[in-house]
Amino acid sequence: MLVDAPYIPASVIEIEAQKAFETGKPGPAFGRQLATIALRGGALAVFIGVLVVFSVTAPFFLTVGNIGNVLGQSAIAGVLAIGLTIVIIAGGSNVVTGGIDLSLAANMGLSAAVYASLVQAGHGDGLAILGALGTGLAIGAVNAAAVTLAGIVPLLATLAVMNVVAGLELVLTQNTVVPASTDFLAALSAGGPFGIPVLAYILLGFTLVVAAIVQYTPLGLRLYAVGAFPDAARAAGLPVKSFVAGSFLASGLCGGLAGVLSVSYLSGSTTGAGDMLLPVVVTALLGTVFSRRLVPTITGTLLSALFVGFLINGFQLLNISSTLVSGVQGLLILLVVSATTLLGRKENA
């Protein structure tokens, strides 16, 4: 379940070990490894602990139907967070100068609006899907051009694109709900085998495909290399800019896919897609604790999305105000980042 890019971790740990060997101090590298394992174990332990508490206290929590529901409800945020994770991997984890895509939530909103409007205009699902995915891809292309050609910092480029996209969604929908119901949409939002929603299967299948590409192919390895060591990647002859541009295209496509899912989940396009932005950013950043080296991974992001989904669900079952969820999310990210930062400091000391 927990996988990183296969080669980089090994080499980094080797370098660490070599450093420790050369200086004759085995302490820091070994200590850090141990602490990292503890932190990752800690994150998993918290996840499992939360599940156990909910399953003991909330009667319906541990039923197949409920778990399937959580998976289905996490599908939209999960797909968006996975798109963001790809950008973060390719751009490096420095959030201000590195990879980030703030236009993802607005992208989902516009893609959903395009889908619903095409259906309203009497077009079939095939064209509507093409329209939504094409919209997402086009937004990704604009981001890619702004970052790699114009040289704008991703944070700003995607911020400006977010404004334009959110505006276009308002123009298209006149800030109203556009209902859409077709057989295809109904099939997407229906229950699948074993009483688990189709959306849940889509989330798992999508994660599987993307994780396979990002974590297990040479392409994925190069993606990590470009983000972590751009200079080294360039020296090794990798087309750094193409990879960064590709990551924005991929995340744009994820936005389009999330748009299709949200039209099916909500039976139409609704306003307020922008509210998804910050939770998605937190989900993607939180995902790093579920990886072996505390780096962004696709599976880690899935776990983090599910973790948030289970929290919301458990709170609902226990009748605890769901307003606490955002606070818990905030505290979690602060706890996680504090722990990682303190670990890093220990290593430097």
Partner: peptide
Amino acid sequence: GISPFLATLGTLFV
């Protein structure tokens, strides 16, 4: 020593 982006994002949520 948390990076400002993450720290203030956490503050926003809390």
